[in-house]
Structure formats: C-alpha cells, structure tokens
Design a protein around this nucleic acid. Structure first.
Length: 441
DNA sequence: TCTGGGGTCCTAGGACCC
DNA sequence: TCTGGGGTCCTAGGACCC
C-alpha cells in the first residue's frame, strides 16, 4: 500500500475532551457531601457489577465491571458506601453539565453520558491548559461535577491527555498535547492497551509483536498497520501522529438501533412473566424510538439463561414489519409473537431483551402493499398521547394493567438512594471546590 | 445464592447479477 | 486437462466503546 499518510498533514487545531471524574459516584456525592474523600461505588442494574468507583475504591484495586458479590465483603471491610444506579438522575445531571459546556465553546459533540469533545474557542488557543482549568472551575461551580480536560489536535490523543490530567496530581485537571511539539516522551509511557480503540484483543496481538506502547504503535509502518489491523489500526496510529481521522461530530444523529433489556432479580421459568417483561421492554424501546422521531422496521426478542452455567440456553427471533412502525400496540404484539416462537419450557431464564432495528425517519414511510395504515395511525397516536401524559407526570401513568404492581422479574436495587429529579431541584448551588486531598491513584 | 445495559463500526463471506 | 470474473448488496459476528 502507498503511504496514505503522505496526503494528510498534521492538524494544527486543538480540540478538548471533557471527561467527568467517576461520574455516577460524583452524582451521588452531590447529595452526600459527607462522602467526599470516602470510598463509594455505584452498581449496575440488578446490583450486578461495579460500574463507577471513587478514587479511594480504585486505589483499593477494585476493577470496573467486577461482580458485586465477589467484592462485597471487601468493600464493606473498607467502609465503602454502595449505591444502586439511578440513571434518570445521572442523565439529568449529564444534560446540565453538557449545557454548561455548550455555553463555553463554539460547538461540541456529546460523546457519552459523561464525555464531550469540544471545539476550542479562540481564547483557549493561546494558553490551552489555563483555559481548560478555568472551564473546569466553571463546570464545577455550575453543576458540582468535577471533570478532567485533555487537549490535543486529535480525539485519540485528547483521550490520552485527559487520562493524564485525571491521574497527575500537578495537572490541575487539565493537560495538553500541543501540535508541533514532540509527544515521544509522553507516548512512550502509555501501554498500548490504554489507547482509545485498542481493546484487549488488539492489545494482546500488538504486545506479542513488540508493539507495547503508544509510541511504538504510532511509529509502525502504514503498510504493516493496514495488513495486520485494517483501517481502524491505521486511523489510530495516524491520530497519534496528530493527523485527525475522527472529526468532531457536531450534529446529533438518530440512533441506528434501540435496545431495552434487563436481567431479572431471580430466574423466571413461566411464559407469562417473560411476556410481561418483554411487553415492558418493548414499551421502553418504543418511547425512545418516538422521542428521536424514528420508525422501527424490525423488532427482535431474545431470552437467555445464566451464561455462566453449563446449561446455558439462548434463543432469538426477529420480526420484520411490513410497514415501519412506532406504535406500542404493534411493537408489543410483535414482541409477544417473537417470544412465543422461541420460548421453551423448563429453563431458568435470567434475562430478556427487545431490539428495534432497521430504523428510519418518521415522515419518510413507504406504505406497505397490504397496508394496515388505519390501525397504524390509531396505534401511533395512542402511543404518543401516552408519552405526553407520562412525560408531564414525570412517571408512568398509562401502562397495560398486566404491568402494574410488584413483579418478581424486576431488577433488584437494594442500595437505591431514592433520589428523584425533584431532589435535584432542591440541591443548593455548589460553589466551592472540595478541599484538596491526597491523590490516591 | 449472587456476574449490566446500550451502543457503533468493520470485515468476511455468501448471494446475486451481468 | 480445462469449469470466468468482477461488482454490489446483505448479514452475521467480532471488536470496541462508555
């Protein structure tokens, strides 16, 4: 292959990655300032695994994704405060953080619930780190959420810079890799597996071939990268050379698929309980579908037993809609049909999922040959009315009778802080940075 | 006893067509 | 003996991310 990189010049512009520190833990601490400086974790749905750790817990060696039952007594021993996750709350806090950021920059891309790529404003270009520290202070003041900012010409380098900002006590929460300056000393210390886009499999592959650091990856030949890793490997290496391959996506794109799934609090054997669960998941997915103004062309249901047991059983069925839909009635009916076609008696089911696929934009529908458009209109209108009512009430008022009441399949959340969006409204505006303390990483 | 949920992109290989 | 070749579309599965 030719040296494709020869056509591209290193980028001289700076972008900034803002990454909220220990985001879910930070959210819970907003309401519990007494937990500042103390070990805290947030658990996944069903209190299954650890998904957010305070610095104190990271220092204890507890890993991301660790099953809770394995570390429970260890965490207790160290006086850790444990929370079930409260995603509604985290999403709301996230949108406040994003709104604060948006006021500070010309444009940005919300990358995840706790990260955003920012275009650097003119005032940030002359003294990037100083500007970033100021921004960090602003966000902390306005939302109470601490974050780290990495600046670099490319996203991949900015991710590494943010990691350094987070871990380096002297960085003040910001670190910049400037264009035109040598990054060699910095990249030499980065294990190849810490690079954005290099997961466990690529990391093992690269290390076996002597490419163990970010510097080595950057300096690998384009030909080798292309042959052994394909376009993803090439782009990653170029980004480490300062050549921008992933631009800031300023426009929010609608999702291409929507999934709703939960693990059950205890195994489920009977078809009726599974039907209740997939009905609920279809409605959750339907609400998200309508909120982004899309129609689903297909719906798939999958059910499975405990994947860590030898008797593991899994089944999946996809239903293609004749005409794309956003009507709960049709989604639920399809979910039931799919479920009944795959359900087998005698298994301890642990989880069910509903996927919506082949999404299209509402308003660009092609009418089906054997249209049931009349029913379609009624079903969709009904679903939107329910969205509106439920949205105004802030909780679910309209739901099938079968979903009312306590259900054994609903996920466990024994450590729920019980906070609601109303509590968020009562929160005093936080003005001060927490007192400095020893960095425990 | 107990092991999350929600996404995206890339690639290889088969089907199909001319 | 010899059994085309190339393009496009689609899908499943892998790998990665937070």
């Amino acid at each position: 292959m030719d040296n494709k990189g020869a056509f591209l010049r290193p980028c001289t512009d700076l972008l900034a990655l803002c990454d909220c520190n220990n985001f879910f833990v930070s959210c819970e601490r907003l309401f519990r300032p007494d937990l500042e400086g103390r070990p805290v974790v947030v658990l996944s749905s069903n209190d299954g695994v650890v998904i957010s750790r305070s610095n104190e817990v990271k220092a204890l060696g507890v890993k991301m994704g660790e099953p809770y039952f394995k570390v429970r007594s260890f965490l207790e021993m160290h006086g850790t405060t444990v929370f079930s996750s409260n995603f509604k709350l985290y999403e709301e806090i996230s949108s406040r953080v994003m709104a604060s950021l948006r006021r500070a920059v010309p444009s940005m891309e919300v990358y995840s619930i706790d990260e955003a790529f920012l275009e650097t404003p003119p005032e940030g270009k002359s003294a990037p780190e100083e500007w970033a520290r100021g921004l960090r202070g602003t966000i902390l003041r306005e939302t109470g959420i601490p974050l780290s900012i990495g600046m670099a010409p490319t996203k991949t380098a900015a991710k590494l810079a943010a990691e350094r900002a987070k871990k380096h006590p002297g960085a003040g929460g910001a670190f910049a890799l400037l264009p035109g300056k040598p990054w060699d000393d910095f990249l030499r210390d980065i294990p190849v597996g810490d690079i954005w886009g290099i997961g466990r499999r690529w990391s093992d592959f690269l290390k076996k071939r002597g490419v163990s650091t970010a510097l080595r990856l950057r300096d690998s030949s384009d030909d080798w990268l292309d042959r052994r890793m394909g376009v993803r490997g090439l782009r990653t290496a170029w980004e480490l050379r300062g050549i921008r391959c992933y631009p800031i996506e300023r426009l929010e794109k609608p999702q291409k698929s929507i999934q709703s799934s939960r693990s059950f609090s205890s195994p489920v054997r009977d078809r009726e309980s599974l039907l209740e669960a997939v009905t609920e998941y279809a409605m959750i997915a339907g609400r998200r579908l309508r909120s982004q103004n899309s129609l689903a062309g297909s719906l798939a249901v999958s059910i499975r037993t405990n994947r860590f047991k030898e008797s593991f059983f899994r089944a999946e069925q996809e239903i293609i809609f004749q005409t794309p839909t956003d009507s709960d009635i049709r989604l639920i009916r399809a979910a039931a049909d799919a479920l009944f076609s795959i359900y087998r008696e005698g298994h301890d089911y642990e989880k069910a999922s509903v996927w919506l696929g082949r999404l299209s934009c509402a308003g660009m529908v092609q009418l089906g040959l054997f249209g049931d458009e009349g029913e379609e209109d009624r079903g969709a209108a009904l679903s939107r009315a329910a969205d509106r009512l439920n949205g105004e009430a802030g909780r679910r008022l309209l739901a099938p009778a079968a979903l009312l009441g306590e259900k054994a399949w609903r996920p466990r959340r024994d450590r729920d802080s019980g906070l609601t969006l109303e509590d968020l409204g009562k929160l005093p505006v936080i003005a001060e940075e927490p007192p400095p303390r020893q960095n425990l990483q």
